[in-house]
């Protein structure tokens, strides 16, 4: 049976994300406080939540590896963390752009939310150093899985940091009372988030297929050598 999940996800991502960005730019009302720069929210926050989802997915696959000892979970965990790191770079880039236009600075070391996300990002960047410093095999897979599981602890800390902070300039949009924005803004945000998650899923499927193909070509080369 042919696997059509990848193309379906890519088409879905194109349609949903395209619609979401269109809504964010041309339909959602302009924020009374921040003006046009608030429209960065519709890419920055979905990208950040998608990065968390990718790291979480990587940790889940790592747990599955340690639980079942099935080797395929190693590649799946690695690919999810790879995607999370790409989205992590985008969080830092779009966040810095938003900070510059809203606060007049590219970065603030006194902001726990920013610093904790940077720590999370650097932690997962170090994952690749660890992974490629060890020879391929079960030992590397186990070490990578344990590392990926440790990193997942940082996700709720990073997510909740803004709520724990007392003095902050980073805005709090989602509170216990619900989203602090107009219904149309929240709808545009939800469409953007769905599109971003679909984009991450499509990229994950394509990246995973490429990595599996790479591994099989390597096996074939060794068999023919």
């Amino acid at each position: 049976m042919r696997n059509n999940l990848g193309p379906a996800l890519a088409v879905g991502a194109l349609l949903v994300l395209g619609t979401g960005l269109g809504l964010a730019l041309f339909w959602a009302p302009e924020d009374a406080d921040q003006g046009v720069s608030q429209r960065i929210f519709y890419v920055h926050v979905p990208i950040a939540l998608t990065a968390y989802a990718c790291f979480g997915w990587g940790a889940w696959k790592a747990l599955r590896l340690l639980w079942t000892r099935e080797a395929r979970y190693d590649l799946e965990s690695y690919t999810a963390i790879h995607m999370g790191t790409i989205f992590g770079v985008l969080v830092l880039v779009t966040g810095s752009i938003w900070a510059k236009v809203s606060w007049g600075i590219w970065w603030s070391w006194s902001e726990r939310q920013l610093v904790l996300f940077l720590v999370l990002f650097l932690f997962y960047s170090a994952y690749f150093m660890l992974r490629y410093s060890t020879d391929p095999g079960p030992r590397r897979a186990n070490m990578s899985a344990v590392y990926a599981l440790f990193g997942v602890v940082l996700i709720p800390v990073s997510f909740l940091a803004i709520r724990l902070a007392e003095n902050f300039i980073h805005p709090v949009v989602f509170t216990r009372e619900g989203p602090q924005m107009a219904g149309s803004m929240f709808f545009a945000f939800c469409v953007c988030l769905a599109g971003m998650l679909l984009l991450a899923a499509a990229l994950y499927q394509a990246e995973l297929a490429g990595k599996r193909l790479d591994a099989r070509v390597r096996e074939l080369r060794e068999a023919l050598a």
């Binding site: 730019l25 003006g35 046009v36 960065i40 790409i86 985008l90 779009t94 752009i97 938003w98 984009l199």
Partner: peptide, 19 residues
């Protein structure tokens, strides 16, 4: 394009360039 619009454009462009 105003200053704010240029930054919004830059943020959306970053996503496009990454993909």
């Amino acid at each position: 394009m105003s200053g704010g619009e240029a930054y919004v454009f830059a943020a959306y462009l970053a996503l496009f360039v990454a993909v």
